[in-house]
């Protein structure tokens, strides 16, 4: 819990109200997920990390515990179609080379983003590199339905595995840059990610119940928008809400931020594709 001194008294008379994260257990098809665990060593200001699922209403939570109810699964199916679809000048599909199907990528999502040949790569980069370089196909639009369906399909193969991104070695300078962005107070409202998701998780900000801003469920299906939301789209929305000039989806800044934010979730199980309000 993240109680302000002035809130303790208020809570006594508020039993039953939505406060802090709840204590529900997420289990999908009988498999229990880690939604709460000890914070990774590098986190200085919080000791326990929680999945965003724990901050949602029971109605929203319920949509994630059964794959038949999870509206994101339609998009995963579309991702599978795309995986098998021949495209580009080389006449290949992903399946032409990845003959065992997306299952081959089990565990990959847990380590993303990662540095490949000196460059920080997120999942969208891997997908587009393959499309352009080996298939001769057009790159997919970052937050477009096709791209996020593919990201969700590959992410699903790691569902239930703990997030485990590397922050040392080649990754260290990117991680430092992401951390700096996380703690910078942007825009006319002068708010940083940490102001909302570290100092105030569990608190209401107007009608929104603040979580720790974890990305172990991304891409998430957002009921409000009725589609899959990319990590960078969510970052953009949060920065825009501080009356700031945001960074672009796919920018070096957002890749670095993604690495840092992913590392804050190290130890939480991957829930991709999660459902949010």
């Amino acid at each position: 819990m993240n109680l302000k001194p002035w809130m303790t008294a208020a809570f006594i008379g508020m039993a039953g109200a939505a406060c802090a994260q709840d204590d529900s257990t997420l289990s999908i098809d009988g498999e229990v997920f880690v939604t709460e665990t000890k914070a990774p060593e590098h986190l200085e200001n919080i000791s326990t990390i929680y999945s965003g699922w724990r901050f949602r209403t029971p109605e929203t939570q319920a949509l994630q515990i059964d794959d038949f109810d999870n509206p994101a699964m339609i998009f995963v199916d579309q991702g599978m179609d795309l995986f098998n679809a021949v495209d580009g000048t080389e006449g290949k599909s992903c399946a032409s080379c990845h003959t065992d199907g997306p299952e081959e990528f089990a565990g990959l999502h847990a380590q993303m983003p990662k540095v490949v040949d000196g460059k920080l790569m997120v999942m969208e980069d891997l997908i587009n590199t393959h499309r352009q370089d080996v298939m001769g196909a057009e790159p997919l639009k970052w937050s477009g339905a096709d791209m996020q369906a593919m990201v969700a399909l590959i992410g699903l193969q790691s569902r239930g595995m703990p997030m485990d991104v590397a922050i040392d070695g080649d990754a260290a300078p990117y991680w430092e840059k992401g951390k700096e962005i996380y703690y910078t107070r942007y825009g006319q409202l002068e708010l940083s990610c940490s102001n909302c998701h570290e100092d105030n998780y569990g608190n209401m900000i107007r009608a929104d119940h603040l979580s720790q801003g974890m990305i172990n469920g991304f891409p998430t299906y957002r009921l409000k928008q009725a589609k899959l939301i990319s990590r960078h789209n969510r970052f953009r929305g949060c920065i825009r809400d501080t009356r700031a000039e945001t960074f672009a989806e796919g920018s070096d800044e957002f890749k670095a931020l993604e690495l840092y934010v992913a590392s804050r979730a190290n130890g939480l199980d991957i829930e991709t594709p999660a459902v949010r309000q």
Partner: peptide
């Protein structure tokens, strides 16, 4: 964390309202 409501300078990446 409270924003300054009567201040016009000293911001980082000041945006055009909520347009991003």
């Amino acid at each position: 964390m409270m924003p300054a409501f009567y201040k016009t300078e000293g911001f980082t990446r000041l945006g055009d309202a909520y347009t991003g």
